[in-house]
């Protein structure tokens, strides 16, 4: 399955006042793959995401996206190159309606965002596409509801619909199923399966069953560095992974 490498890091390191949160991480994400990043709480997964999407500056190391060095790029530029992230804490625009949330993304991708002299009515030309995206995540009936009032699981679904509106080449999903009911988790997993066509996905996940069924490659992170990498069978058979990951799971 492995396509060419789209996203690559070399020796990626982030220190917070001496504390090394991400330590010499070299990742290769292949085109079209679902790549999972797992590890106990505090392993540095979110920090890693923040580095990849440029929300944080790396202390050392390089990031390459489709052959381009993006180590010093700005976060908005990275998003414009097709590398779009979600957040661990669900990120919606709470006072905008569900439909407007998706439209904000469509508007960015398709123009007219700087037009301060035109009526917002021109945005209604995005409504059809926004409704399609909402239908995909089973949110059609909520389109007029302010996003802040949605239950948690549906906020996550909305966030994914908003991200997909940009038609990104690569999605970075930070714990897309965190805090969800079992039913919602199944929804999201099914959704990720549907949207993977033509895309690359890097996801942080805590829920091992989600990872086992979905991902082509798993990278295990502990205390900032890569402990193991491979498919689910390889990684889960690794005694160090079992000790580090399962040990802390029991402790938690």
């Amino acid at each position: 399955m492995a396509g060419d490498v789209v996203l690559e890091t070399e020796g990626l390191t982030k220190e917070f006042r001496g504390f090394v949160a991400v330590n010499d991480v070299s990742l290769r994400v292949h085109r079209g793959a679902i790549h999972a990043l797992i590890g106990p709480n505090g392993a540095g997964k979110t920090t890693c995401f923040n580095l990849l999407t440029k929300f944080l500056e790396p202390t050392r190391g390089t990031i390459t996206w489709q052959g381009r060095d993006i180590t010093r790029a700005k976060p908005a530029e990275v998003a414009r190159m097709g590398l779009v992230r979600s957040f661990q804490i669900s990120a919606v625009f709470p006072h905008l309606t569900v439909l407007e949330n998706v439209r904000v993304a469509l508007q960015r991708a398709r123009g007219s965002s700087y037009d301060f002299w035109r009526s917002e009515r021109v945005l209604s030309r995005f409504d059809d596409r926004a409704r399609e995206l909402l239908a995909d995540v089973h949110l059609s009936e909520y389109e007029a509801v302010p996003a802040g009032l949605l239950p948690y699981g549906r906020k996550r679904a909305l966030e994914i619909a908003t991200t997909l509106a940009l038609e990104p080449e690569m999605l970075l999903l930070d714990e897309p199923t965190a805090g969800m009911t079992h039913e919602d988790v199944e929804h999201v997993v099914a959704l990720i399966r549907r949207i993977r066509a033509g895309r690359t996905i890097l996801m942080v996940e805590h829920n091992l069953s989600v990872v086992s069924g979905l991902s082509d490659t798993i990278t295990v992170l502990t205390r900032g560095h890569v402990l193991a990498e491979g498919d689910y069978a390889t990684v889960s058979a690794n005694p160090e992974v079992r000790a580090a990951y399962l040990g802390s799971e029991e402790a938690a």
Partner: peptide, 28 residues
């Protein structure tokens, strides 16, 4: 008009969740 324009809609998004607006590619 400015507040109720496509531009105003982006302003609202930035005010509500700036990091999310950035992650959608807006040069806030």
């Amino acid at each position: 008009r400015v507040v109720h324009s496509p531009f105003g809609q982006v302003l609202k998004a930035i005010r509500e969740n700036e990091a999310r607006a950035v992650s959608l590619g807006y040069r806030v």
